[in-house]
């Protein structure tokens, strides 16, 4: 692993009134890393991701994304990141090809790039038959894989995945992770939140958020040693048990 930091936060905090959704979180993520961002519901994961993506302004604290300042250079950050939210987020009434062209288009790809990218993407996903079908008619697993591929169509430095595999069967999840590994091997940094602890094992490093704070951050193996646990499930339970906030 190279030592180039692509995400670096220092005491990043978001308050909503008296409520501190994200409480002085500090961590670094390195290039090409698959970084698992775990926590119970309501722990503050989504707030953290939203700040990192520029969807929400931090209350205080510093962060740089892909080398750009989170306050002053949001426009540059936006060009260098991809984002896939927990909701399925392609247009169901557009075809596979139209979706690819739309999202490529708003990221400013040229017609030539768009053409080669979409051909390549459809081939990788094995969707040549479905290319002209409406996305709404595809099974969920396919949609998710397509959504991921679209999220990295502009070759971002980092891609943020907010619970990307919710409601998807184990086989498709495995295939989805194959795509993630492939992207990671190409040097794209993956920042992923998940509720599936088997997926947590696939990550290079994991951070655990409890009550807005990062309670643990290490490789899955080290975390299991540290908490004398057999699986990530046990680690998660051990940490989340102490949470004061109720999950919503």
């Amino acid at each position: 692993m190279t030592a180039e930091k692509v995400i670096s936060t220092d005491r990043l905090t978001k308050k909503f009134g008296d409520f501190v959704a994200a409480d002085e979180i500090s961590f670094d993520v390195y290039k090409g890393e698959i970084f698992g961002f775990l926590g119970a519901n309501g722990a503050g994961k989504t707030t953290a991701i939203r700040m990192l993506c520029g969807l929400s302004t931090p209350s205080y604290g510093e962060a740089t994304i892909a080398g750009f300042d989170i306050y002053k250079e949001t426009e540059k950050i936006k060009k260098n990141i991809g984002y896939m939210s927990q909701k399925f987020s392609l247009y169901e009434d557009l075809t596979v090809l139209e979706n690819i062209k739309f999202f490529g288009g708003i990221y400013g790809l040229s017609d030539k790039e768009l053409k080669s990218k979409s051909n390549q993407l459809i081939e990788t996903l094995g969707m040549s038959v479905e290319a002209k079908k409406l996305v709404g008619s595809l099974p969920l697993g396919w949609k998710q894989k397509l959504a991921f591929s679209v999220a990295i169509i502009h070759d971002p430095k980092i891609v943020f995945l907010d619970e990307p595999t919710g409601g998807v069967d184990p086989v498709t999840r495995r295939q989805f992770w194959d795509l993630i590994y492939k992207a990671s091997s190409q040097g794209i940094t993956i920042f992923v939140t998940t509720h599936y602890m088997d997926e947590a094992e696939y990550c290079h490093r994991i951070s655990m958020m409890v009550d807005g704070k990062i309670k643990a951050l290490d490789t899955p193996t080290n975390l299991k040693d540290q908490y004398h646990a057999n699986s990530m499930d046990d680690v998660f339970y051990e940490l989340a048990r102490g949470a004061k906030r109720k999950a919503d």
Binding site: L55, K79, I81, Y83, F88, Y91, A151
Partner: peptide, 12 residues
């Protein structure tokens, strides 16, 4: 549908 977030994250 959640596409608004994607649009807001995009450089558009």
């Amino acid at each position: 549908t959640g596409t608004m977030e994607i649009l807001l994250v995009s450089p558009m």
